[in-house]
Nucleic acid binder design. Structure first.
Lengths: 241, 241
DNA sequence: AACAGTTGATACATTCTGCGACAAAACTCT
DNA sequence: AGAGTTTTGTCGCAGAATGTATCAACTGTT
């Protein structure tokens, strides 16, 4: 997490919104407030957020409904605020997809600690996502020029990459040495879920290997992990401008 | 998450350990218990876990200390159990690196929901070779190149390893001279529990021996411990880059 | 409209792994 | 020591997973 995390606070009480946003901003975060689900949707559509603090009890669409809706689509983490003692709500919230809840009234310091705990965790899921934009990246015997989408070898020889090649390679570079399942790769490269018996990723790996491996029959860079997926076996260095 | 998640329950009260593990196992998870920090460390070294449920109050090293230690290294998610009302502990726990806490006494259904919430957002990908990822490792007459998954002998001769060979060897190298049971090996290599009469590990050991032993009929590197399992009898040295 | 390039699907070849079966070895007990 | 029992070693095979050639659909260009 390089920049300040951006938190969206959704609560119908003006005082709570104000207090929470002020406290978060005093502690190294950006905070934006919304007073109901409709306003939340508007803010979400036009900005980038790292986490939503969501009140369960709201006029209009309530927190549980919002939570169900959001956790279905995006993977935006949600921290729910519940009235004290409504254990049922809390459990249902967690089961529906909230990442945490906090009973009201709450200690702002605890809210902050919980937000950080969630961010720390979800941070992992997109470690360097998009961070390669415009950079040059060195790995194994190659340098990837991510502006031009071209690979350059030690002799200055260039190899062109297609869109799919480039996207897949970028995803692997950003997660070097991690084993990524076909599902994850499909999600990360194409944003869709792999159908059963879908060989798309295998095909793309095969094509990419033909371009980047010295000997595509004995791949050294992109390793197959049976029953696991694929893994990039190389150190990755983002080059200085 | 393809397989059942494996939860390590650390608590000094026998009844709580028993109740929690039983409940988790009834709900589609594997659960293993440890009664204190020392036993926890032993289990961690010889098994694969996805999350730790950790009691704060324990004889010996206490939960906060454990939490600080673990969150430094591994990144294994931690859910802390705290005595009711000790808000300070809870906040400190979260700040130290716990992913969540639950005050005792707790509703088992809520514990389950929280565990699932953490697993859902942490669903982490792991490096293929654990702590050896990307390293070269010398043992006996071999050097293992863990990027390329090949063994190199003194003459530079290479021996290819299949995925299962490599995973098993990696697990053994990381735990040289420890005796690992078939169950533990199954857990560490495949993340699943060995069925009764399961000869899978024996087979893999046999195949691996054929590749790494000078005389596979008289194994010197991978030792059989009757009624115990197998053990790697060699010094292991991670080589400098 | 023809074309070149790219991508996903399908089919087939190849490799890998778990399993059952049986052999061999180790251990126990008399 | 010998017979019986348990544990381990490994062979062969079938099913599953993977690699990739080929083709059809699609995109954008000329």
């Amino acid at each position: 997490m390089n920049e300040m995390p951006h938190i969206l606070v959704v609560d119908d009480h003006r005082e709570i919104r104000a207090a929470v946003t002020r406290y978060l901003e005093k502690n190294g975060m950006r905070a934006t407030a919304a007073q109901d689900a409709a306003e939340m949707d508007a803010k979400l559509a036009t900005g980038h957020f790292d986490l939503i603090v969501l009140d369960v009890m709201m006029p209009g669409e309530d927190g549980l409904s919002v939570c169900r809706r959001l956790s279905g689509e995006g993977g935006l983490p949600i921290l729910m605020l519940t009235a004290l003692g409504q254990e049922t709500d809390r459990i249902v919230g967690l089961e529906i997809g909230a990442d945490d809840y906090l009973p009201k009234p709450f200690n702002p310091r605890e809210l902050l600690a919980r937000i950080k705990a969630i961010l720390r965790r979800s941070d992992r899921s997109e470690p360097l996502a998009g961070s390669l934009a415009g950079k040059k990246v060195r790995f194994a015997q190659w340098v990837l020029d991510s502006d031009r989408r071209v690979l350059i070898d030690g002799n200055g020889q260039e190899t062109a990459l297609t869109g799919a090649d480039f996207k897949l390679l970028t995803v692997l570079l950003e997660r070097a040495r991690l084993v990524l399942s076909r599902d994850q790769l499909m999600d990360l490269t194409a944003g869709r879920r792999a159908a059963p018996l879908d060989r798309t990723i295998d095909n793309q790996i095969s094509r990419l290997r033909r371009k980047i491996e010295k000997d595509p029959m004995q791949p050294r860079l992109i390793i197959t992990v049976r029953n696991g997926g694929y893994s990039l076996a190389a150190d990755v260095e983002v080059m200085n401008e």
